[in-house]
């Protein structure tokens, strides 16, 4: 049984699925400041990748929110299947040693 599903959203129940003239949906990721990672900010429609980037600039950085933009067509995103939440995420919950607070450091040692 797979832990991933092909798309982040459920399938659309479009009325006339065959001859859609709707622009594809894109997911937009923006690096807000130098040094930070790109973060998902939302979606939009665009006819191709170049226009998706331009639309993202116009839609999602109207208030100077970004320094770098990534776009990816929504259908190319693979996502964890919601029912599989247990197996994929729980194992790491037991690896408490990954978190700094797991270790007791004597106060005398100073900040670490």
């Amino acid at each position: 049984m797979s832990s991933v599903s092909p798309s982040p959203y459920p399938e659309t129940e479009s009325k006339e699925k065959t001859d859609r003239k709707e622009w594809p949906l894109w997911e937009i990721f923006i690096r807000g400041q130098h040094g930070l990672s790109h973060r998902h900010v939302g979606s939009l429609h665009a006819p191709d990748a170049e226009m998706a980037i331009k639309n993202a600039r116009d839609v999602y950085t109207r208030r100077n929110e970004g320094v770098s933009i990534w776009v990816v067509e929504s259908r190319h995103i693979s996502a964890t299947a919601p029912g599989e939440k247990g197996p994929l995420f729980e194992p790491s919950e037991s690896k408490v040693y990954r978190h700094p607070t797991f270790f007791d450091i004597p106060d005398e040692v100073g900040h670490m």
Partner: peptide
């Protein structure tokens, strides 16, 4: 217009399209 766009996108995560 931007707010409409954000909201349509939210609706689209429920399996409907903006054009519909």
């Amino acid at each position: 217009a931007g707010h409409g766009l954000y909201l349509y996108c939210a609706a689209e995560t429920l399996g409907v399209s903006r054009d519909d």
